[in-house]
Design a protein around this nucleic acid. Sequence first.
DNA 1: GTGAAAGCGCTAACAA
DNA 2: TTGTTAGCGCTTTCAC
Lengths: 344, 344
Amino acid sequence: MRGKGNKRVTSVEVAAAAGVSQATVARTFSSPHKVADTSRAKVHEAASALGYVPNAIARSLKSQRTNIVGAVVPARGEYWQHLIAEISQQLAEQGSQMLLFTFAKPSEVASVVQSLRQYRVDGVLLASSFIDHDSIVDVAGLGIPAVAFNHPEALDVTASVSVDNVAGAAALADHLIETDHQTVAFVGGDPDTGSDRLRYRGASNRLREHGIVCPYIPAGGFDYDSGYAIAESLLRHFGGGDGLPDALMIAGDELAFGVMDGLSKLGVSVPNDVSVTGFDGLPQASWAGFDLTTLVQPAEELIREALGQLTSTPSTIESHTTVPGFVRVGQSTRRQACAEEGKA
Amino acid sequence: MRGKGNKRVTSVEVAAAAGVSQATVARTFSSPHKVADTSRAKVHEAASALGYVPNAIARSLKSQRTNIVGAVVPARGEYWQHLIAEISQQLAEQGSQMLLFTFAKPSEVASVVQSLRQYRVDGVLLASSFIDHDSIVDVAGLGIPAVAFNHPEALDVTASVSVDNVAGAAALADHLIETDHQTVAFVGGDPDTGSDRLRYRGASNRLREHGIVCPYIPAGGFDYDSGYAIAESLLRHFGGGDGLPDALMIAGDELAFGVMDGLSKLGVSVPNDVSVTGFDGLPQASWAGFDLTTLVQPAEELIREALGQLTSTPSTIESHTTVPGFVRVGQSTRRQACAEEGKA
DNA sequence: GTGAAAGCGCTAACAA
DNA sequence: TTGTTAGCGCTTTCAC
């Protein structure tokens, strides 16, 4: 029995209709247990008859809490899109809303931060390594809780939550070693990002322990096109398909999709000619066309952790959490040892 | 020169520091032209010295405008994820923010609507055919502008913006006819959605004009897995690879990805054994692994139109806009006529 | 052009 | 338990 397009019904009107004070109406909706059953019933009746819904704006102004969390994520990238839904769902569970900001260029972040300040959000989730350090510092100085998501770089100014990039890459390396791969190259997205560096470090260190030297090859980005484009360079670099290493470790799943498609177009077969690993654990990685061996980032856990930091943190405590991922084995890496001819 | 973690600076403090009244500070930020250059300068100086940022919550309470648009989208689906970034970018351009709500089940929409009401958003973008009609009616009765995005069903209670599904599907059918396909089947996602029905109608009508009867085959969903799973049923239904029609028109790109991968796994080659078309024009459709012939929905234009309706509409005017898409030809449909043996 | 003052709709003491 | 009373920080008449 909700009022039609009736503009704005306020608690005062409900109070009048219910024959109680405005304060009682307010209490009925904010702390119901402080109101007698009888009045609560009257209020609810009047409220629904009038189509009343409490005004969260007014509530926020008074209580200094908006129940809104700002999320700042890159506009492009399969990985980030994948996360947004999860963030939104978890926020909904805890009765919060998400104000979403996407940026195409790092330079846009500054203006986003302005909006964030204006809206007095309860916290900010900074989801990207592409956010420059200055902006992070900016946000950190805002006095609102912030957590850098998968941005291991931001360690010193704000809390952060990341997958364990080093251990994850090492785990992938282990898998390659166990399946008898002798030569491995790492294809990075952007060496200026922490994820890239840490993943390479984790992989190359572990491989070195097994006597394998792993070169780093920059693709110039984490996107599909960068991967597709680098495939040809790889072939040239290694002197054709026969010169390719046994395995390519790619810094991110989307990048890996591009590399796989690029290689395939050039007649290189995965995993027959070369094994490929990704990193992220995107849903698409499980698609039959790719079936990529990858390190799955436990999105739900990561975000739960991040949101926990946001809400539980009294001030800007610099807590740095690292969550382990796990390897999901697909068909993009060959499963069993097989003799390789003409290689070290 | 921004204040550090200093809590909340208000216009009153800025006024004191600048030696003007609070009203002048407020005017400096909301209607600068109504303030003398000299005072404006003083205010800005004091403001930045103190790290003042206007409080959008208070502003909204007074002005009855939040500059926030609510977007309600499904949690899953490549198509919707693809749109979110675009919506966010355009909103940012016009100085608005986006409160994002995702829902996993249609039943969650009701609670979302509650939040939307509480936050007094300026408008709501309902992005899905999965939102049940009752919820749409609910929102429509809220008195806040709403537009159903790609939800041609909602015609009678709220404004709507959609791609021209019928014309788009017909255009795809034309392409198939021009490239000499003789038999075609349509794989739908969910016959309960308007997009599905309209696309099938557009395709089958056009095909019928050319003497081709196009059966409708339900996949049970628009997701990848539904497509992957239906591939085997298709083969069984048509009595093996040889019995397949010349072309399969799939109701959505993601679904088409699944069908393609499924067929491929079963040894059916696209486009050699069967041509495939999609619908949506997702970025992934252009990936080399798929290279899907599809109908591109002009996302930017669609959203611009939708947001236009939201802001320009004085009340709930029932305006229904349809935007044309265009065919992007990929390798998933064979380009030239070729003789088919043993078929009508 | 600027200041004083009255709210926007709610929450949170404080009384009763 | 309920009502009264201040504000939260801003926008916006209305005088000056």
